[in-house]
Computed example of a mutant assay.
Amino acid sequence: MVTARPAVSAVFFDGEPLVRMIASALFTLSRQRAPRNPVYEDTVQTAFNHLVLRCLRHDVLPPASVPDMVSWAMHRPLHEWPLGLPDDLDTADGFLIDPQTRLPTQQCLEWVISAPDPAAEQYENEVMLGVIQQCRVARSPESYTAFRRLLITRPVLTGTELALLGEDLDLMLLIDTIKRSYEPAPGSYLRDGQYAQCARCKCLLVPIEGGRYRCELDRCRREGYPTIERTLDPARGNGVYQLSRPLRMFITGPGLAETDLEQDLIKKKLQPEMWPNFDAYDLRITLPNKQVWAIDVKDRANPALLARTARAFIPAPPYDQAFLVVPQYRFDEREAYARIFARHVADEVRDRVRLTSDAEFQRVLTRELRRIRRITTVHSTDGGSSNA
């Protein structure tokens, strides 16, 4: 006699929807500060249930519990999960939880942000769009620029420093949003009663085994164990506060590449306009021949998810060429980065926005500036116009 297998619901998630559910569940767990009743939020339990169902349908031993699912996220790269992801979305080293810091990785957060989930939108989208709207109404682009620089350059503040921001004329308009964007630093970042700040990105470092520290940002981690810029005693300065994790990951992280590029352009005798028209794009430069380039900077691990969220640039202020610039190390880590992006980006974006690494963009810009100088020299020699 054959024993019938228990009936299971025909409605279940796999592939991309399931990855988004799991990533959102892991992010929710990472923000849970105290025991709750029931133990897990519905989103967490639902993600676990669907993962178990997916495993059973494919004769894979499922995780035994939610903590076991978290263990999978720390020790199994995404391509080893029985999820049915397309190759472009599957990465060999795509852990959802960093096994050393036990925090969601950037890849995990990219899946969260890509999900149609109000909790995810609140952090990167709702906060920034709310600030843009507030600054537009007040006709205060300088407040938006100051806010953006604050998130990039000062992701960690003492309570005293946070309070003093209310005296900054450019930030006064947004002080309530600023206070909501920073949250008390958790005790898990403490070592010997002190917080340590990364010298490169200024985020808090996470203590790991062997007396070392690990930075949350992919770029800092790739460059090895970090240098400590300063330590902070929470008993002094009225506590320590840091930006919420998605803002650190998606504003502070790429913002460093934006401001690095800004400094490189200034060295080339160009004057970049940062976040013009309330962040229509990240940088706007006018070349010596009056040609205008628009630049948006992204630092994303997953080129397919980046491509799906890529949009044609807002045409105001106007520009002649548009560039989507990604740090070179992303292309070094994934040789097919550009090809995967091209397969997933919308046709109207592919025709209007050029994807380059930051290194390639610098080469393109250098060649164009040399071309302009040659033409200008020829015109000047011939007694013609100095404009190309």
Rank of each mutant, 00 (worst) to 15 (best):
T3E: 15
T3Q: 15
T3H: 10
E16V: 15
P17K: 11
L18G: 03
R20I: 05
R20L: 08
R20N: 08
A23S: 12
F27Y: 14
F48M: 08
S65L: 05
V70L: 13
S71T: 15
S71P: 04
M74T: 09
P77G: 07
L78C: 10
H79D: 14
E80P: 14
P82G: 05
L83D: 07
Q107M: 15
C108N: 12
E110S: 04
W111N: 11
A115R: 02
Q122C: 09
V127P: 00
L129M: 13
Q133Y: 02
Q134L: 14
P141R: 04
A146V: 06
E161Y: 03
D170F: 01
T177C: 12
R191G: 04
Y195A: 06
C201T: 01
D218E: 15
D218M: 13
E223P: 07
E229A: 05
T231D: 06
L243G: 03
S244P: 03
G255Y: 05
L261M: 15
L265F: 08
Q271T: 10
W275R: 11
F278R: 06
N289G: 11
Q291P: 02
W293C: 01
A304S: 11
T309M: 09
P317L: 11
D320S: 08
D320Q: 02
V325Y: 09
Y329G: 02
F331H: 12
F331Q: 08
A336W: 13
I375E: 14
T381G: 12
